[in-house]
Simulated scan of single mutants.
Amino acid sequence: MAHNLNFNEHTGNYSFFSVQQKAWHNLGQIVSEYPTSTEAIRFAGLDYDVLKKPVFINGIDNVIGADGVLIEGGDLPVPNRFGTYRSDTNEAFDVVGKDYHIVQNRDAFAFFDAIVGGGEGILYETAGALGRGERIFITAKLPGYIRVGDGDDVTEKYIFLTTSHDGSGSITAAFTPIRIVCQNTLNAALGKMSNVVRIKHTANAKQRLLDAHRVMGLADMMSAQMEGIFNEWSKIRITDSEVKKLIQLALCPNKETFDFLKKGDEDALSTIFKNTVEDAFSYAMMSDTQLMETTKGTLFGAYNAVTGYYQNVRKYKDDEAKLQSIVMGGTAQGKAQKAFDLCRAFEKEGNNILQLN
C-alpha cells in the first residue's frame, strides 16, 4: 500500500512520527512517550513555515495591453495570484488567490492544545506531511473512553485533523472514536450533530481554528450518547439472517440494487455487491472481535460488521484512500452512517425495517 509521506531531502528524514508502535509503512520516527505539541511538530518534520509570494510570468516580450499602453518585457505579475512554498526547502506547493490565508502547522497543533486547555490530557499519537509537505495530518487521543458492556469492549476517543497549504481543501477536524479490540472507526452522526468541523482558508481562518475546539466540545456529548446507544444495542438480540439483511441494506449502492432486494431477486444482484455482502457477513460471523459478549448475536455486533468490514477487510489502493473513505466523509463513513440509522430503526421497530416485500 502506498504511503505518499513527504521525504525531506534537507534532513534525510520522512515527515512522520508515531508513538510506541511502528506504522504499517515502517517509516518516520517512533517515540516512546507521548510528546508535547512542540516536540510533535519537530518529530513529524512539520517545523517549517509556509510562505507566499506574488506569481510572475517570466521573460515576456513587449506587448500592448488592453488599454493600448505598452507593457515592457520582463517579469509580468499575475494579478491576485500567489504561490505558496515551504520555508526550509523552498519547495513550491501551488498557486492560490489573494484571499487565501495560510494556517501554519503550529496553528493546527494550537487547535488541539486549546481543546482541553494547554494540552493537559491531550495525547499526540501520530502526525506527518504528505507529498511535498503541502498536506499535513495529526491524530490525538482525548481523555476518557466509551465502554460497552461489563468487559473489555472499550472505544478510545480521537480527534483527527488535516489541512493543506496548496488551496486544495479546507481545514478539517473530525471526532473519531476507535474500538480498541479491532481498530474499528465507529463514526456516526447523532441527529443534527456532525463529527466533522470544516474551516475555510479565509482571512479569519486562524481565529476560526482556535475557536473550533468549542464545536469539538460536541465530542464529549457524542461520546456519552454513543456509549448509551452502544450499550443498549449490546443487549438487543438479532438473528444471523437479520444481520445479513441489515448488511445488504447498509451496503446497497443504488436504487436498482434496492429494487432487486425488495423483489427478493438475488440472482439479479451484481457479483461485486454479493461478494461485498458475503465478505462483511463472514466478518460478522467469524471475526474474534465479533464473538465477544457485546457483539455475538447483538445489534451492536451487526453495526460493527459494517464498520469492521471497511476498516479491516476491504482493500484500498493506498492509505490516503482508506483515510478518505473512513474518516473524511467517503464511502465507508456513508455506509457506516446508513448502518447506524438502520440499527436505530431496528432498536425501535424490530425486524419490520428489514421486511422489504
Rank of each mutant, 00 (worst) to 15 (best):
D211F: 07
C252F: 00
E39S: 13
E33A: 14
G119K: 01
Q248E: 15
A188H: 12
L356K: 02
G144Q: 09
A345S: 15
D61C: 03
E156A: 05
S194R: 12
G191F: 12
W233K: 09
D265R: 08
Q29A: 11
P79M: 10
N13T: 10
G329P: 13
I60N: 02
V313K: 11
T276W: 01
L70E: 10
I60F: 04
Y158K: 00
K263W: 12
I178M: 07
D113T: 04
N105P: 13
G68M: 07
D67V: 06
K235E: 13
K263R: 15
A224Q: 13
Y124I: 00
R344K: 15
G119F: 02
D113N: 08
E266C: 05
K317P: 06
W24F: 13
E156N: 05
P77L: 08
N62V: 08
P253T: 01
E72Y: 09
E256C: 01
R135F: 03
M1S: 12
T276Q: 13
D279V: 05
V103L: 09
G217K: 06
T11H: 00
E242W: 01
G83D: 10
Q333W: 08
R81S: 15
A114Y: 04
L130C: 04
Q29V: 15
F273T: 00
W233N: 02
A2V: 09
L76Q: 11
F82D: 11
D152E: 11
K141P: 02
A203Y: 12
V103C: 14
E256A: 11
P177D: 06
N62I: 06
G131P: 08
Q104S: 07
K53R: 09
